[in-house]
Each structure stands twice: as structure tokens, then as C-alpha cells.
Simulated scan of single mutants.
Amino acid sequence: MQAVVLAAGKGTRLRPLTEDKPKALVEVDGRPIVEDVFDNLLEIGVSELIVVVGHLKEQIIDRYGDAYEGVPITYAHQREQLGLAHAIRQVEPMVDDDFVLMLGDNVFRANLADVVNRQQEDRADAAFLVEQVPYQEANRYGVLDTNEYGEIVEVIEKPDDPPSNLVMTGFYTFTPAIFHACHLVQQSDRGEYELPDAIDLLIQSGRTIDAIRMEGWRVDVGYTEDRDRAEKQLQTKSNRTDEPIANAEQSAETGMDWS
């Protein structure tokens, strides 16, 4: 399976760490974030890395070249950072079939393989990890709105007033159906083409969507304090994923069944 890694961001909220480097090369516990992403993807057996680069792209290309630990790397250039759905459109000519998508600024120690396995078993058009976060942090993410049965009815990108605290993480699998949805997405009020809007189009059109509860942990490295928190997590026993987690995996077709 191919894996797409989104690593085009400037990381303005991470300054001064990003004054002279792209966000993906900010180090966490002595290693670039994107290298940790690569290692996670190799662990689940991806056969090719497609890396979307943009800001200071030469630094990433020069560092990793055409392979990482023997796995081929292909690069796609996102000339303007116009959102995740726009970034995905850049790799359409390079993707052959179903693929994994991982954000290049997330540190994971979680059940990533469960997402791949579920998507392949169900032939779902999208599958992704979800987690509950504090309500005051939910507006940083794509938030899931559910009905009284616990089914996903809408995905909203960074809402001012989140309808829940259940959010998408930075790990997904897709069929090529996502490309059509990304082309249909309109620019948001933030001036970006949002990935949650594309996933919402899949939901509204009746496509099969699997959402899997995250087991383990992840840190979205958006601010310097997030980088510090990720380092602390990596340096403690909490990076183990074989310990019991309170909320077990759940999923459903075009929604989630929390019962």
C-alpha cells in the first residue's frame, strides 16, 4: 500500500523552531517529526512513501532523497498551502489504488494497523482514527457531529462552537474516491480546501466510512508546548500501546455505533 505524507507546512505557530526549517523537520526527542511518521508507516508495511512538500521543500528532499530505509520516496509539490484537501489533489497522478494518509506533524503511538485492516476488510471509502479531546481543544481539529444513535452525520473543520469533543486524528486510509471529493470542496472561510469537508461529502453521498477509536496516544505538534509534550511522552512508559485503554475500538458504516 502507498502512503501519502503531508509535509508542506510552514509551522508559523512553532516559531522560532521553524524560522529556518519546514515544520516536518522540527525535532522531537532528537529526531525530525517526519522521520517518526516514516517509521510508523514502515511498521504497518507501506511499500512507497509519497511526500507532499512545499515550504523549504529542498531541505526535506535533500535529507531523504529517493528512499527511506529502503522504501522508495516520491515527492509532490504543493506550491501554495491551501489546505489538506488541496494537498491531496497534488498526489492524484501518483496514487494507484487505496492509500494511507498521515500528517507529517503528528507523533503517534497508537493502533494504526487497525485502521488499515478495517478499511481493507470493509472496502470502506475512508477509515480514520478518532479520539476524544477536552472541549476547549476541539476547535483545533476536524470535529465529528453525531446523532442520537452515535452515527456520524457531519464533519466540521475547526468550528468556533464544536458540536462534540470527538475529533479526527492525523491518520486515515482512503480509496481513490477521496480525490473526486477533494475536487468538489469549496474554499472555507479560512481560504483553504479542508479535508473534513471532503470526508463530509463522502458521508453525505452514502459512502462507507469507518471510524476507529484510537488506542494509545498521539500529539499534534502545532505549538512549541506540543513539541515538549510529545518529547515527555516518548521518554516515558506511556509510549507503550499494549496496555489497556479505556475506550475500545468502535466503528460503523457511514458512522459509528457507540453502543
Rank of each mutant, 00 (worst) to 15 (best):
R123Q: 14
A87E: 01
V28E: 12
L144V: 15
R229A: 15
V37F: 09
F174D: 01
S259Y: 07
P22H: 13
S47I: 11
V155Y: 05
Q120L: 12
D257I: 13
K57S: 08
Y172S: 08
A177F: 06
Y172W: 13
I44V: 15
I212G: 09
R79L: 02
G83V: 02
P22K: 06
Y135Q: 08
M256W: 10
A85S: 08
F108V: 00
D145I: 07
V116W: 07
D39N: 13
D161F: 15
P134E: 06
Q187F: 02
R218F: 14
T74P: 00
E192S: 05
M168Y: 07
N106V: 15
G170H: 03
L82M: 04
E69V: 06
D39H: 09
Y193C: 00
I73W: 08
L202F: 01
Y223S: 06
Q136M: 09
D114C: 02
S238D: 13
Q119N: 08
H86R: 01
M256V: 14
L184C: 02
L234Y: 05
P22F: 10
V219Q: 13
W258E: 10
T241G: 03
P16K: 11
Q136I: 10
V133C: 02
D125K: 01
E48D: 15
E231Q: 14
R140W: 09
N247I: 09
Q90G: 02
N117H: 11
T169Q: 08
L201W: 03
N247R: 12
L42M: 12
G30T: 13
M256S: 11
D97Y: 05
Y135A: 11
L42R: 14
L103N: 05
Q132Y: 14
K21E: 13
V5G: 10
V52M: 03
V46K: 10
I203L: 15
G216S: 06
H55I: 04
D20P: 05
R140S: 05
R109I: 04
Y149T: 10
D197P: 00
E249D: 11
L103I: 04
L129Q: 05
V116I: 13
R13T: 15
L234P: 07
L49N: 08
H77Y: 13
T169W: 01
T241E: 08
N117S: 12
D242I: 10
V133K: 04
K23G: 07
N239R: 13
H86D: 12
N165L: 07
M94G: 02
F128W: 10
V53Y: 06
F179A: 01
P196W: 03
L25A: 11
M256C: 10
R109Q: 08
A87R: 00
Q90S: 10
F174H: 04
L14E: 12
K232R: 15
V185S: 02
A248T: 13
Q235C: 10
V107D: 02
S259N: 11
M256D: 07
N247F: 07
F174M: 05
A110C: 07
N147M: 06
R190Y: 07
W217T: 01
I61V: 14
D122W: 01
D97Q: 11
V71P: 03
P93D: 02
R15S: 11
A248Q: 14
G11S: 07
A127Y: 00
A113E: 13
